[in-house]
Amino acid sequence: MATIIHKKEIEQLIQNIDVVSAMEEGFIAYNNGNTVVPPVGELIFEEPKGEAHIKYGYIKNDDYYVIKVASGFYDNPKLGISSSQGLMLLFSQKTGQPVAILLDEGFLTDIRTAAAGALAAKYFAPKQISAIGIIGTGIQAKLQLQYLQKYTPCKTVWVWGRTPENAAKFKSDLGTDFDIHIAKTPKEVAAHSNLIVTTTPSEIPLLHAEDILAGTHITAVGSDTSDKQELSSDLLAKADIVIADSIPQSKSRGEIYRAVKDGKLAPEKVIELGKAIQNPSLQRTNEQQISIVDLTGVAVQDMMIAKAMYTNFKN
């Protein structure tokens, strides 16, 4: 009989897990060929607008394999429901028997994505961060800011949202912990920030090459399909360092996909995150470089967090 773990239990147990270290371990295993990660399954919905991603795979010689379904339906907040939904299924890699059903409602996907953003900052953000820029005001925007605190003491934040109301709520929710400034445009965010995280489902570029200060690091989280784009292709062309969480996935989705398709970025310029983590020469070497980490979300992240959650639950 599979163990069922509910969201409330998951929210409590996550406090005991070093998710950023788990993501680092997973990305290294992925880059080193120690995982099996098939292409992403995907369903796109128009009315209402939303999407569901199916990610699955396993780490070689491990105890488990994972199948994860995560969705984003962007009108959900109007109904009083989180835009993120989903669950994770953990199976025995030895027998195929279901081991655990994690009814996380998309929570673990949100957390592992934020942790990957913190990991990107750990290796690519400038040493001196003047301000953190956040593009977007939803769940992921808040989590990215909170998880960045593991690697920077910076409390100055510039945020842009699609509506003034969304930005005001973001500031209200987090303002006691941060010095938050509301920008009128994404460009204004970039003018004041040298560490930027983009977290929207935008299908048109929000940041352009001329907007970005020298020495800025950008973690792009929102573009996880072929249609989404938060960064202009010219911006990726300008970057000194371009990192993909998964080079195979970057050939069909994300910022890198769009820039290569537009003829602005040579594929050979792209470095995989797990490789760069292991080789300091592939990381930032001076404070004037512009770096971009494109996170499309990889199944190995789901494997690591699901396994850690179940192990913690058992203990």
Rank of each mutant, 00 (worst) to 15 (best):
A2C: 15
I4G: 09
I5V: 06
K8S: 15
E11K: 15
I17F: 04
V20Y: 01
A22V: 10
N31Y: 14
N34Q: 15
V36F: 13
V37C: 11
E46R: 01
A52Q: 11
H53E: 14
K55M: 04
K55N: 05
Y58W: 12
D75A: 15
P77D: 02
P77A: 03
P77M: 05
L79D: 09
G80R: 12
S83T: 12
L89M: 14
L90D: 06
K94V: 11
V99S: 06
E105Y: 08
G106Y: 02
L108H: 05
T109E: 01
T113G: 03
T113L: 01
A115Y: 00
G117A: 09
A118T: 04
K122S: 05
P126D: 05
K127Q: 12
Q128Y: 08
Q128K: 15
I129V: 11
G133L: 01
I135Y: 00
G136D: 02
G138E: 06
A141F: 03
Q144R: 10
L145G: 03
Q146W: 05
Q146A: 07
Y147I: 13
L148P: 04
L148A: 06
K150H: 14
T152F: 00
P153E: 09
T156V: 13
T163Q: 07
T163Y: 01
P164Q: 06
E165Y: 08
N166S: 15
K171E: 07
D173T: 15
H181S: 14
H181Y: 11
K184I: 15
K187C: 10
E188F: 02
L195D: 05
T200F: 00
P201V: 07
P201I: 02
P205L: 02
L207R: 07
A209N: 08
H217D: 01
V221K: 08
V221M: 11
G222W: 00
D224K: 05
T225F: 02
D227E: 14
D227S: 15
K228F: 00
S232L: 04
S233V: 04
D234I: 04
K238Y: 00
D240N: 13
D240G: 11
P248F: 00
P248E: 03
S252V: 12
G254W: 05
E255T: 13
R258F: 06
G263K: 10
K264W: 02
L265R: 11
A266C: 10
K269Q: 12
V270D: 01
G274N: 04
A276T: 11
P280Q: 01
P280K: 04
R284W: 00
T285R: 10
E287I: 03
Q289S: 08
S291P: 09
V293T: 15
T296L: 00
V298W: 02
A299S: 10
Q301I: 02
K307H: 08
